[in-house]
Design a protein around this nucleic acid. Sequence first.
DNA 1: GATGAATGAGAATTCATTCAT
DNA 2: AATGAATGAATTCTCATTCAT
Lengths: 227, 227, 227, 227
Amino acid sequence: MSVPAPMPPALLRPSRLSPESDKREHLLAAAARVLVRDGTAGLRIRDVALEAGVSTGVVHYYFGSKDEILVEALRWATRAPIQRFAELRRGGDHLTALAALLEVSLPHPGVLFDEYVLWLEFWSTVSHDASLLPLCEELATAYGNQVAALVNEGTASGAFHPVTDPDTVAVRLIAMVDGLSFRSVVGYSWMPLDRVRDLLCAFACEQLGIEPDALPQVRLDRGEPLQ
Amino acid sequence: MSVPAPMPPALLRPSRLSPESDKREHLLAAAARVLVRDGTAGLRIRDVALEAGVSTGVVHYYFGSKDEILVEALRWATRAPIQRFAELRRGGDHLTALAALLEVSLPHPGVLFDEYVLWLEFWSTVSHDASLLPLCEELATAYGNQVAALVNEGTASGAFHPVTDPDTVAVRLIAMVDGLSFRSVVGYSWMPLDRVRDLLCAFACEQLGIEPDALPQVRLDRGEPLQ
Amino acid sequence: MSVPAPMPPALLRPSRLSPESDKREHLLAAAARVLVRDGTAGLRIRDVALEAGVSTGVVHYYFGSKDEILVEALRWATRAPIQRFAELRRGGDHLTALAALLEVSLPHPGVLFDEYVLWLEFWSTVSHDASLLPLCEELATAYGNQVAALVNEGTASGAFHPVTDPDTVAVRLIAMVDGLSFRSVVGYSWMPLDRVRDLLCAFACEQLGIEPDALPQVRLDRGEPLQ
Amino acid sequence: MSVPAPMPPALLRPSRLSPESDKREHLLAAAARVLVRDGTAGLRIRDVALEAGVSTGVVHYYFGSKDEILVEALRWATRAPIQRFAELRRGGDHLTALAALLEVSLPHPGVLFDEYVLWLEFWSTVSHDASLLPLCEELATAYGNQVAALVNEGTASGAFHPVTDPDTVAVRLIAMVDGLSFRSVVGYSWMPLDRVRDLLCAFACEQLGIEPDALPQVRLDRGEPLQ
DNA sequence: GATGAATGAGAATTCATTCAT
DNA sequence: AATGAATGAATTCTCATTCAT
């Protein structure tokens, strides 16, 4: 079984034919790409403009200041994952939903990897400037609620048999996903993607009382363009 | 039972009476404090000099460039935890060592909190510039080895009864510590320090087959100046 | 006795129903208002367009450059006073004409005040760029001639008995009007409008050999909208 | 009789050998010269730096922003006249003091002319931004007090016989000085320096009840370098 | 060694002007 | 004619780095 590319829209990769609809979003995507590549400290308006294929003036035409586009880009780029998880939960049984959720939580090369990099930037930014904390917390809560709902529903339906109360297990899962994935994203050689997957699946099965073989094999094909 | 302040040396707090011997270290400490406060993106030589109580010229006298002091400061500030863990493991039985290790892994206000902020900066920096990856990986490995050694030794001695192989449990513990602590450091209101501790202790006990009551109560006194 | 509002046309105040006939004048009026508010240094095409309720493109459609609209606006806005004085001299005896002229020379809140602000801009501009000097001098001469003609005619008719030759008195009157009015316009608390009037009337009477009581009491009604 | 150059210090002209004492003042003088030449609207940091013979960074090193140096330059450059008048009043009898005061009130080419240009800038600036009004008013009051004191003392001593109360005459003198001088500064061909002097002396004599021949002939030599 | 004034390259920002629609 | 998005040159401002003292 394989999960479809999580998002059709051109998210973090350049789009040649940007619709006239939203130039602002085009710029945010460009800024997000620059952020992934250079980080908050390395973001320059010139680079955002270059990446978006426009002049620097345009960036200031749509955004008041460098700070504004930086914040907006973080806000914009980190909204995607939540939607993705919500969609995944809709279709299929709880076991399949769990497997899919774990798979799209891995830092696959492409958007998913990039999103982890951006989250690192986001957290790092927030730890020095609390003004973004509310947004950050809101996004994190939305994500946590998705996982908690899945665990709770799966437990109620008899699909999961958590080792302790469902909410605690949900928090553990979230923390474990980050704890493992970030190490992979940073580039630790002893934490390649496959190891993150193995550790994560085994952990989830243990915490949710699932037979390892009962968890459907779900893979995002590497070759599949993630946009 | 209580753990002593982990480190006598002036780590991240200003020291009035810096010995003439090591001005370089004095500057690194100042840089680390500025990094904690302003982040990599906000670090300015002027601020480091101000924090250290010297002129900007001095910073350049001891360090070739801004980049050098930034890297050196990260390197310098992130060495402490490893030493700390090594020391903690030396004295006492495995249960006590575990309890102490967990306690000093929490982002207590003060140095411990600051070290998490710096790790966030470190990871964020490395994710955009792999030149620091070897150092980062080395430090992480040293830390991982400490935990793995403790789990293995405790298992061999019969103090721990891990739910799966000891190395896997060690990795899980490390990932869980970060996954929970970072959320607390970033400022999520639903992840205060005490919740991190509770979740972590319960998790460690479960993974290591320890009766919750058997884990010694270890606290870092709040009043104790962490220097 | 009271002087009618000196000018029916929408001079410096926004006009809702601008005739299609003269868009150019509509833009000049908008530019003049912006000049009064922000000064030459603060004038931006964008603000002129905003004030006129059009796009920036329109401004460039009617005027070649920022410099052109600035100069045209000064030229346009400073023509009004001359016409005004000419009209005032036509009706009535010399004493009444003098009283009316003095009254409309005061920086009453509204157009008259604004015109002084623009003159200040004009002079300040000319003192750095002599290319506007001919226009400036021409306007000033026209104004001076009006005053001189009034003094001369009044003297010839026996209404005035100047303390020295009529032309000198005319120059003195002009200089005194500015010297007092500018201080009021700038905002000196010790030179409110009423003091300017008192000083000016007394001075004019003294210089022209008029009994103070002989000068008709002329007032611009405050309630009267100056447009 | 001739008045010595009012000010030994290098005021508005470039000084090659600036004392180490006050670089800030050196920059203000440069800014004032640029203001005289180009006006508020034309002032550029680059030009100030060029005029001062330093790099643009220096200007920002001593002044926070363009606005700050502009305001400081106006403040600095307009202090001089007051001191000058105070000094002139000290020596000699009232008639001589009056003659000297009138002479240094004329817009002689050099500093005196430049000061009028700056006052025009000052007034124009204040008319759009009242934040400078207190300073402006303070300076104007100090100047007014000097003139009023001279008129009052001269009247008390019997040297002057004003046509009306001394304070009114003082205000008239001040207003006349500006009203005539500004026209000359702006460049009106019919108001050259000599005509300003003639009109002013005649007016002062008339208002103060002095025989025209009784006013000492005081001249600032054109050739004399005003610095 | 230490200072901090000075430099100047480079980044952010502004805004007149253009031009496709 | 009108629009307003886009341009890009010009300007302000920042800050690592240098260097005379």
